[in-house]
């Protein structure tokens, strides 16, 4: 079911350091569960929080500079664009930025 027509949703989610370095945390942006990651190598990345394979919680996954690994079955998704390198479907990627120390996530 296409969601092309949805208006862009943007949410300010509070201080960036509520996400420990090298980990991810889950937030709700509008109706969308979003996992935001803060790799040690820098930057912020946001993906839909639910693994398309079996519904695993991506925010609980291990990350490196490039991918997050779902804790249930080890599928890996690119932090940058949500593509899956391990054969599952891709996951939606969103824009995450830091503005004045605050985490901002934008859907589409």
């Amino acid at each position: 079911m296409s969601t092309d027509a949805q208006p862009a949703v943007e949410a300010r989610l509070g201080p960036v350091d509520q996400i420990p370095l090298g980990e991810g945390r889950a937030f709700l942006v509008g109706d969308e569960p979003v996992a935001v990651f803060r790799p040690r190598s820098g930057g912020l990345h946001a993906l839909r929080a639910i693994c398309p394979h079996r519904g695993g919680p991506l925010a609980d996954g291990l990350i490196d500079g490039e991918v997050v690994m779902c804790p249930l079955h080890n599928h890996q998704f690119s932090l940058a664009d949500g593509t899956c390198a391990t054969g599952a479907d891709d996951v939606a990627a969103y824009a995450a930025t830091e503005e004045d120390g605050e985490l901002v996530v934008r859907l589409r």
Partner: peptide
């Protein structure tokens, strides 16, 4: 921070 926050809100 958020060690025990649910990851699938």
């Amino acid at each position: 921070p958020g060690q025990f926050h649910d990851a699938l809100p």
